[in-house]
């Protein structure tokens, strides 16, 4: 047996400390960020109370005028912070993104996992991964130059003409800077995430089960529907939750195509919106000129809310994919 030198023991201790720091850091950062954002938002919690969630008007007040005092905190006269517009914008745009992205991702993942092989498969896989690597500001630029005018001139009038009888699809078709444009750029950004995860899951479905399905006369679609999809169900929900979280937190691309509406809820799919993340990015600079500091506290509360919503969707996804007894599903 090798004799352990004292130097080796010392290095082992150093390694342990470094590993402990490394392992603790994600938790420490999360707790620190949550704590700072929470503490920063206390003045707004006192100033606005529950109205922060229910009102649509966001107004820093007259920064060049007098201050008012309410509930023991100070803010410029006329200040009122209602985040409902941004909550609705964030949820609706990310849900539209999921509605568009999920079918596309499943289709792409099926083709990548089961149909294409060799150089073509290699190329397609690379392309999906490259799509994930496009910086969001580039997608936003494409959105301004191509997507927004196309929605304004062609797509929105077309949607209205065939689906206009459904509420939310009718009404003014607007400027192209819209809920629809936001949902579509977000869909582009989350398709690669969901596709890559789903492809890996599909590749893990046992070949024996799929071949068995084909052997008893199932069509390709039936194999996918009754063998593959049930097998990957839980992992797939996780992938969708991952995409949803990304869509709600995405800032730059949405900021560029959403129209950044304030003080007004979307009337239809073609209305301008604003999301929590984009609004924080837009407003922080002006908020810093508020001598009372309330504007920064209000943005902190918005950040806290975004953090909480992302956490809740994550927990729901975890609950959905919790381990349980499989019934009627073929396992390997």
């Amino acid at each position: 047996m090798r004799k352990v030198s004292s130097a080796a023991k010392a290095w082992d201790r150093v390694f342990r400390v470094l590993a402990a720091i490394g392992a603790a850091s994600p938790a420490v950062f999360l707790v620190l960020i949550a704590a700072i954002v929470s503490v920063e938002s206390i003045p707004t919690l006192r100033f606005m109370g529950v109205h922060f969630l229910t009102e649509t008007r966001w107004d820093m007040g007259n920064l060049y005028g007098a201050m008012t005092h309410k509930n023991g905190v100070t803010a410029p006269a006329g200040a009122s912070y209602g985040a409902l517009v941004f909550i609705v914008g964030t949820l609706l745009s990310s849900i539209i993104a999921l509605v568009v992205a999920v079918p596309v991702s499943i289709g792409t993942a099926l083709i990548l996992a089961y149909r294409v092989r060799g150089p073509l498969g290699f190329l397609l896989n690379i392309l999906v991964e490259l799509l994930a690597g496009i910086p969001s500001v580039v997608i936003g630029l494409w959105g301004i130059l191509v997507l927004v005018p196309w929605i304004a001139n062609s797509f929105a009038p077309f949607l209205k003409s065939i689906l206009g009888w459904i509420p939310f699809f009718g009404g003014q078709t607007g400027t192209g800077y819209s809920l629809l444009a936001s949902g579509m750029v977000l869909a582009m950004m989350i398709v690669p995430i969901i596709t890559a995860t789903t492809r890996d899951l599909l590749e893990q479905v046992p070949v024996l089960a799929r071949e068995g399905g084909l052997g008893i006369g199932m069509t390709s679609w039936e194999v996918v529907r009754y063998v593959s999809l049930p097998y990957i169900r839980e992992g797939f929900i996780g992938a969708v939750a991952l995409g949803w979280g990304r869509a709600m937190g995405e800032t730059m691309a949405v900021l560029m195509v959403s129209g950044n509406a304030t003080n007004i809820l979307p009337q239809n799919l073609y209305s301008p919106i604003s999301t929590m993340a984009a609004f924080i990015a837009n407003q922080l600079d002006s908020a810093e000129t508020d001598a009372s500091g309330m504007a920064v506290h209000a943005l902190s509360e918005l950040a806290l809310l975004l953090l909480a919503i992302t956490l809740v969707t994550n927990l729901i996804a975890r609950w959905l994919v919790r381990p349980r007894r499989r019934e009627g599903v073929i396992t390997s």
Binding site: T56, Q172, G259, S271
Partner: peptide, 12 residues
Amino acid sequence: TISWPGLQTEIG
């Protein structure tokens, strides 16, 4: 930054 009148036709 001001609290603009909310207009459906406005672009930010």
